[in-house]
Design a protein around this nucleic acid. Structure first.
Length: 280
DNA sequence: CATCAGGCGAGAC
DNA sequence: GTCTCGCCTGAT
C-alpha cells in the first residue's frame, strides 16, 4: 500500500461524477474499488491523503496517469471568472473531481451504452457485459473481478445475448462498433496522435457514436479537455444559467473539465444527502 | 397511465 | 443541412 498527498482529489467525487462506471464503494467503510486497464485497485482517503492498495511500481505505471495526478486543478479553478458565481460555486462544490485517463475501447462501448439511459442502469449493463464476455481474474487480495471484454469478444456476441445484458436497442450499436474496431475500420490507437477535431471526426464513423458520445470518449479516454459533452442535463443547466451562452472561448482548451463541475453540481442537487461530501 | 434517463440513425424535405 | 420519429427498459 502506498500513500499520496494530493490537493483537489476526492475519491467520492470522482466516483460520483459519472465518468467511470466501474468504480464503486466497496465494503462498509469508505473504501472504493476500481477496475481499469485489466487491474483491480482499492483506494480510500483521509483528508488530503490518498491510500492506494497497490505497489509503488503499479502506481507509477498505471494509477498516477489514470488519476491525472500531474495536472494542477487548483490552477484551473483559479482561472474561473470571479464574476461567474454559478461556475465558481460548481467548481468549488466539485473541486475534488479529476478527469480520469480511461481506456479508449472501454469508454467507447461504455458511452454508447450511456445514451438515453441512467447511470444506475449503465453500471449494471457494463457489469453484465464484463461478467459475460470479460476475462475472469483474481486480485492480490483474493477478490474476483472481470476485465472489460475485448473487441473480439464483443464482436462474437449474438445480439440477443447483448439484449440479455440489458443493453436494449444499443445492442446493435455495440455489436457493429466491436466489428468495426476488430476489423481495423478505424485506427483507435491513431486517435491519440490526432487533435480533438480529427479524433472526433473519426469516432463519429462508429455506428452508435454521435456528437455527445464522441465528446465523452475524447474527454474521458483521449483527455482532449476542450471536448465539452452536451447532454440533456448540461443543456438545461446552460440554458438556465447562461441565457447569453456559455463563454466557451474563455475556457477553450479545458471546457470539458468545467463541464464536469457543472454536471456533478447539477447531478448532486437531487442526490440523497448521505451521499454528499463524505469528507466535508 | 405518461415521461424521462449523460442520443443516435434513418428518412423526409 | 435541419427536422422528426422510433427505440429497450426501469424508475418515478
Amino acid at each position: 500500500m502506498i500513500t499520496i498527498k494530493s490537493d483537489h482529489f476526492s475519491v467520492s467525487q470522482i466516483c460520483e461524477s459519472g465518468q467511470c462506471f466501474r468504480m464503486a464503494r466497496c465494503g462498509e467503510d469508505s473504501r472504493y474499488s476500481l477496475i481499469a486497464f485489466g487491474n483491480y485497485l482499492e483506494l480510500w482517503q483521509e483528508g488530503d491523503t490518498v491510500f492506494f492498495d497497490c505497489s509503488q511500481e503499479e502506481y507509477d505505471r498505471i494509477w498516477k496517469t489514470y488519476f491525472d495526478m500531474d495536472t494542477d486543478y487548483a490552477e484551473i479553478i483559479k482561472s474561473i471568472d470571479a464574476v461567474d458565481g454559478y461556475l465558481c460555486a460548481a467548481a468549488d462544490y466539485g473541486s475534488g473531481i479529476r478527469i480520469l485517463r480511461q481506456e479508449l475501447w472501454e469508454m467507447t462501448i461504455s458511452f454508447i451504452i450511456s445514451q438515453q439511459n441512467n447511470i444506475k442502469r449503465i453500471r449494471r449493463c457494463i457489469r453484465l457485459l464484463c461478467e459475460k464476455y470479460g476475462e475472469r481474474r483474481q486480485a492480490q487480495n483474493g477478490t474476483a473481478y472481470y476485465a472489460f471484454p475485448t473487441p473480439q469478444a464483443l464482436a462474437g456476441a449474438a445480439v440477443e445475448d447483448l439484449y440479455d445484458c440489458n443493453l436494449g436497442y444499443r445492442s446493435r450499436y455495440v455489436l457493429r462498433t466491436a466489428e468495426s474496431v476488430l476489423h481495423g475500420e478505424i485506427d483507435m490507437e491513431g486517435l491519440y496522435r490526432m487533435d480533438y477535431a480529427g479524433a472526433k471526426e473519426q469516432l463519429l464513423q462508429l455506428y452508435g457514436v454521435g456528437g455527445k458520445v464522441a465528446d465523452c470518449i475524447c474527454l474521458f479516454a483521449l483527455h482532449k479537455t476542450e471536448a465539452f459533452p452536451v447532454d440533456t442535463h448540461i443543456r438545461r443547466a446552460l440554458a438556465a444559467q447562461y441565457p447569453d451562452g456559455f463563454p466557451f472561448e474563455r475556457y477553450a482548451d479545458y471546457g470539458g473539465i468545467l463541464q464536469q463541475y457543472i454536471f456533478y453540481y447539477d447531478l448532486q442537487k437531487d442526490a440523497p444527502a448521505c451521499e454528499q461530501h463524505p469528507f466535508h
